[in-house]
């Protein structure tokens, strides 16, 4: 008590705050920061598994140089993984649409909300992968009519005959064949948008309504600006989710290098490069979107 009265209230609060995050800090050092450092070290080594642990020899930048200059798969895989990010805007539009749809009160809202959150609940990597392979790729059902929702079918041919360029047709084709992927990746985003929509104060709508704004104008002038923080958060979440996905090409090839080829150092170099690429992309996204963000108050 004596000691307590000697040091000021503010200092005491600081230490209390520190004790609250201490368990996390210990966990973070043990299970995140040191493994992270270790992984960076591994990237510069050639590792062999021995009965007493890994035997390492320093190889300098050899892993990285062969990654960039000798490996014929890594760079194309990386570009392919980045190309998947084209889905992010589509996910945002879809989840915003869905969130607005189920925001209001209507009979059956509970059911629609439960359905909307379902991908969050059962959309885990393995299940998704099996479903994608079985449900949507299989011809097991003899091309029966009820897969039409997800296969591109005749639409590309239709577009081509309408005189669209092949670029557009390919894009549309890609989008349609990934509708399943798209909708099943949007669970968390819908939840976040819904949270954002409920956070917009009613008086903004009332005031703009009195000024004569219709619901169309209200969407562009009130809803969208107020949602910009959520849009940033959702963009970042979507990018992370996509890059860390079980089915991602790079993730798969890292796994393969690690656990089938046992090139541990090389796999570490791959994952370090990949991690840095993700950080750069997230930084770019944050920088680009930062200017458009409007915070309440």
């Amino acid at each position: 008590m004596k000691l307590g009265s000697k040091i000021g209230y503010e200092t005491k609060r600081k230490w209390y705050g520190f004790t609250f995050i201490l368990p996390w800090l210990i966990g973070c050092i043990l299970f995140f920061l040191t493994p992270m450092y270790q992984s960076f070290r591994y990237a510069f080594q050639s590792l062999e598994a021995t009965p007493t642990g890994f035997a390492a020899t320093e190889v300098g930048f050899e892993n990285f140089s062969s990654l960039f200059f000798k490996d014929t798969n890594f760079l194309p895989d990386l570009v392919g993984s980045l190309g998947d990010l084209i889905q992010v805007p589509l996910i945002l539009v879809y989840s915003l649409f869905f969130a607005i749809l189920i925001k209001g009160k209507f009979p059956g809202r509970t059911f629609m909300r439960a359905v909307a959150f379902m991908p969050v609940i059962i959309g885990s990597g393995v299940l998704m992968q099996i479903l994608k392979e079985d449900v949507f790729a299989s011809g097991a059902r003899g091309g029966s009519a009820d897969t039409y929702l997800f296969s591109a079918g005749n639409i590309p041919a239709l577009l081509t005959s309408m005189g669209m360029g092949t670029g557009v047709v390919n894009f549309v084709n890609q989008v349609i064949s990934r509708v399943f992927d798209l909708t099943w990746r949007s669970g968390v985003q819908i939840m976040l948008f819904l949270a954002g929509l409920h956070g917009i104060p009613d008086y903004l709508y009332e005031a703009s309504g009195l000024e004569g704004a219709g619901s169309f104008a209200q969407f562009w002038k009130v809803t969208l600006p107020m949602l910009t923080p959520m849009i940033l958060l959702n963009t970042i979440y979507s990018v992370i989710d996509m890059m860390n996905d079980y089915g991602n090409t790079i993730i798969r090839s890292i796994n393969n290098t690690m656990f089938s080829l046992f090139k541990f150092g090389y796999a570490s170099a791959m994952s370090v490069v990949y991690f840095l690429v993700i950080i750069i992309i997230l930084g770019l996204v944050a920088l680009l979107l930062r200017r458009f963000i409007i915070y309440q108050d």
Partner: peptide
């Protein structure tokens, strides 16, 4: 750093973690 813990793919950490537990 809290945010970073979500960003980093588990593939980056799996080897050091494995040897930590092993």
């Amino acid at each position: 750093i809290v945010v970073f813990t979500i960003v980093v793919p588990s593939q980056t950490l799996i080897l050091p973690l494995y040897s930590r537990w092993r």
